[in-house]
Design a protein around this nucleic acid. Sequence first.
RNA 1: GGCAGGGUGGCUCAGUGGUACGGCGGAGGACUGCAAAUCCUUUAUUCGCGAGUUCGAUUCUCGCCCCUGCCUCCA
Length: 461
Amino acid sequence: MSLSVYNSLHRRKELFEPLEPNRVGMYVCGVTVYDYCHVGHARVMVVFDVIHRWLTELGFDVNYVRNFTDVDDKIIKRASERGIDIHQLTNEMIAAFQEDIGSLGCLPPSHEPRATAHMPDMVKMIGELVARKHAYVSSSGDVLYAVRSFDHYGQLSGKNIDDLESGSRVDVDDSKRDPLDFVLWKMAKPGEPAWDSPWGQGRPGWHIECSAMSCSHLGNTFDIHGGGMDLKFPHHENEIAQACASNDGSFARYWLHNGFVNINAEKMSKSLGNFFTIREVTKNYHPEVLRMFILGTHYRSPLDFSDSALDAAKAGLDRLYETLRRFKGETLDGRCEMSESLIPPAFTNAMNDDFNTTEALASLFDTNRALNKALNERADVSDLAAQFKAMLNLLAIGQHDAEAWFKGGDVDVARIEALIAERGESKKARDFARADAIRDALIAEGIVLEDSPSGTTWKKV
RNA sequence: GGCAGGGUGGCUCAGUGGUACGGCGGAGGACUGCAAAUCCUUUAUUCGCGAGUUCGAUUCUCGCCCCUGCCUCCA
């Protein structure tokens, strides 16, 4: 069974065939680093992390590039509000980003280029666009892209220039030949950070950096370009226009877009102000719960964020950890590593069908049940356990120590263990009143006891 | 207005031309001194509404209703 992916460019699922048989070049639009990441950002990172992992599992050598936009109007504004240099701000936010995304279990991409480190690439591409008459210097001195010069403008978003203009909310700007023309190089005002260019001191427009950085790392033509649905227009449309017009080649071949995170059926976004940062959420929930929550919905569907949804994700994850916990002392050595032969076909088929993590999870839970059953029956579980671990590793959940998962936090372990021992004695003496009193007291403080033939264990709820 | 994507049980979320996956929650049972955990059984005669195609549609076609998103920065 081979991999098929939904290509936004053609609005249909297509068989995935990379340019080179064993290699995949993938570019994902990262974040503008002026503030902490919210759950919407978390979704992109987790979604493409899973895609990255699955492509790797399929045997592809994946060159995964994800950028940082570290210069733009919002960054300049925020830095000036805080009275710091933009680099101080962006370094701080990049560090926070790495921490947040790392906590979600995302593997680092192959490259994480920063826009400010690619000025020559951008200047070169803009120069090419000017030379080919796809760009012009406006009366304000900014370099603009002439959308009418690119025949295929609108191919990704399925729009045509005239439709866009009829319903456009864009302010008409006299310096533009067409209202949809967008800036490639923005002239610096006094005091603003600036870089040299043939058109004067300034900074790049937002869209050019991704065209330049993706081409510079992956070549003019590469396999996958991804990002949030909201980037489809105008950002990705403009990227295509820039890249294709400057190198007369094609650009990314498969465009993958993930759906939004919603709150109360409304998109979570900075502009609406209805967002939760990753760090806010992980104050109350383990980051892996957030990952589980994201994996529970197919990446192209909207994802409704709420405490009850996180609670449900946590309950499901707890169930997996309960099983993991039963392996205490059992070795699975040499069988934990990913191996296609270990993965149930249902899981593989689900992942090969446009990365359907929801269905893959269903397969995982089936294995979970089979495993618990086998454990109950004291049967040999080595194969099931290896399958279970392989699937967990591919989704990057269940990655923590099961005991720590249930017992973590600020609890007095010694005291609890002492009480459990005391209850054990009471049970032996058939003083159930005393035993139950101890258990009830612990429940009152959020500690649940679980008896088993091999002894009593506990967990925090 | 243009374009795109949706409406599946109490909640959530997959999916298929032959009456529907998984998770959460609920109910019953096994296990247990009782629980918890686990396992078993069960929880939509039904997939927004209407019509059409078909032996048969939730799945295909058409119409309608409703929701969301993009068209400005946005993951």
